[in-house]
Design a protein around this nucleic acid. Structure first.
Length: 223
DNA sequence: GCGACAG
DNA sequence: ATCTTGTCGC
């Protein structure tokens, strides 16, 4: 059984290292990455996927998958300790160095300001944006049905991110800064990476690779 | 004590 | 996260 009090203390140390600014208006990335984690073997093995996309085409340049034994159970608020090891294993396999990365999960929109996007971001020290499908903490007004509309996510009187209606008739996304990105740039770049689907391309493709969905393996193995 | 609770 | 086909609605 894990000592969550110790993990909590570690989160507070790492949270102090998170940089909530970065990506100037003239920033132009060469490569944008997407990361996501899935599980197999009855949840005993984490399967992390990282994809590298060209900007601005957003076409895949590289994709890597790493499988690592799971060491912790899923506990809300401690997700990063469970998924970071696999994500780091996939990270070390990359040949490209992304200028910006999107990770499935929250960034600073976390009780202690250290969701997986921030934890991973501080660890590898690159700009990271968190894209979650559900709220962990905070309050917000539901954005209108109009695609592109958004509302601020507020936690303890402070903005921690945005709730974005990325696509019509779909539940909104929870966008937050992970590391070396401001709230506004996190929202801006998420919108820049949308291509008609609920999820921005980096996360959408990483999810497809990580969850070995039937039909997508064919897509990757073709040519 | 009760409800909430990323993936 | 994962187990899983078709189906209702826009």
């Amino acid at each position: 059984m894990a000592d969550f009090a110790l993990l909590k203390a570690e989160q507070q140390l790492l949270a102090a290292q998170v940089v909530r600014e970065g990506l100037s208006p003239d920033f132009v990335p060469r490569f944008i990455a997407g990361g996501d984690t899935g599980f197999e073997e009855n949840g005993t093995v984490a399967r992390a996927a990282i994809v590298i996309l060209h900007w601005p085409s957003l076409e895949m340049a590289e994709h890597r998958v790493a499988r690592v034994p799971v060491t912790l159970p899923y506990v809300p608020g401690y997700l990063s300790f469970r998924e970071c090891p696999a994500l780091l294993a996939a990270w070390q396999q990359l040949t490209y160095r992304p200028d910006l990365m999107f990770i499935d999960g929250h960034g600073v929109a976390h009780p202690r300001g250290l969701g997986i996007a921030s934890h991973f971001g501080v660890t590898v020290d690159i700009p990271v944006i968190g894209v979650a499908k559900r709220r962990l903490c905070g309050d917000y007004q539901v954005p209108s049905a109009t695609p592109g509309d958004c509302q601020p996510l507020i936690y303890q009187q402070q903005q921690t991110g945005w709730v974005l209606r990325s696509k019509a008739r779909c539940n909104p996304l929870f966008i937050s800064a992970g590391h070396r990105v401001s709230d506004d740039m996190a929202l801006y770049w998420t919108r820049q990476c949308l291509r008609g689907y609920r999820l921005p391309e980096p996360t959408r493709l990483a999810d497809a690779v990580a969850s070995q969905r039937k039909g997508f393996r064919r897509y990757l193995n073709r040519q």
